[in-house]
Design a binder for these strands. Structure first.
Lengths: 138, 138
DNA sequence: CTAATTGCAAAAGCTTTGCAGCGCA
DNA sequence: TGCGCTGCAAAGCTTTTGCAATTAG
């Protein structure tokens, strides 16, 4: 089971790496924290250490395989790098993470950086939302 | 030296609180971490503990006097609450923080939440930028 | 006078790292 | 076979907290 992405990154094919890749792929719609990935692997009967999860994720990040998002409270979540940029919407009640992309916002961000005479390298946009109550508004 | 904002928040007028308020006001253009506030006070000859800085900042946040931003790496910065919402642009090279506000982006965010059938509670938008190379302007 | 506040130090939560042994290429 | 990789446990960082002494009102 050779993984070209590992080869390309100069990383050896090892159990922990394959397992972590698999978990990320299996939960492509979720945004997992290192601890969650660790727990999922333990639950799956894999023998792995949290330190390795962090190390591998960091290597994957450096290799451009995954991307890390820093959510509130110093908690990081990881997701496979799809090449398709998007931002996140987090439900304050359920914790559910939804991805979205607005070309208009993306463009406006570049315009703003431009106005300030700087170059936009990257950005982080997170919307904290909550289910709409029945009546619209409070 | 009575501070109506403290009274209103039900907080006693104490040295640490006055000092922290003063530091925040003195550095209104900066975005200070708790550690920086602590250090500034030490440098100013004040006798204060880091724990108190955190506690006071949290109380100020609860009272709506300051607002806390979670930047990368689990590092929080604080600034006086001006009532005027804004987002941040951080220079990756100098670390300089610039505030900005785009009504268009604000509106688009609400529209996006709306499209997803949820209510926008708050958001975090941070642009990571870098000085523009050659081209005209700086 | 009495509850709020502070300092200290220990603890907590997330992430990183030193080290010795194991395993991929 | 050699260097990369892993696990373990300890260390690092930022932030929080228990407790006893101190202080504002």
């Amino acid at each position: 089971m050779q993984r070209p992405e590992l080869k390309k990154a100069g990383l050896r094919t090892t159990g922990p790496r394959l397992n972590i890749l698999r978990v990320l792929e299996t939960h492509a719609e979720r945004h997992l924290g290192a601890d969650e990935i660790y727990q999922l692997l333990l639950d799956a009967g894999e023998d792995i250490s949290l330190a390795t999860v962090y190390r591998v994720l960091t290597q994957f990040e450096d290799a451009g395989l995954v991307c890390r998002h820093n959510f509130e409270g110093g908690h990081s979540v990881f997701e496979l790098e799809t090449g398709r940029h998007h931002d996140h919407m987090i439900c304050l009640e359920t914790g559910q993470v939804t991805e979205f992309l607005s070309d208009d916002i993306e463009r406006l961000q570049r315009e703003i950086a431009d106005l300030h005479g700087v170059e936009l390298v990257e950005h982080s946009l997170i919307l904290y939302v909550r289910p709409k109550k029945k009546s619209r508004d409070a």
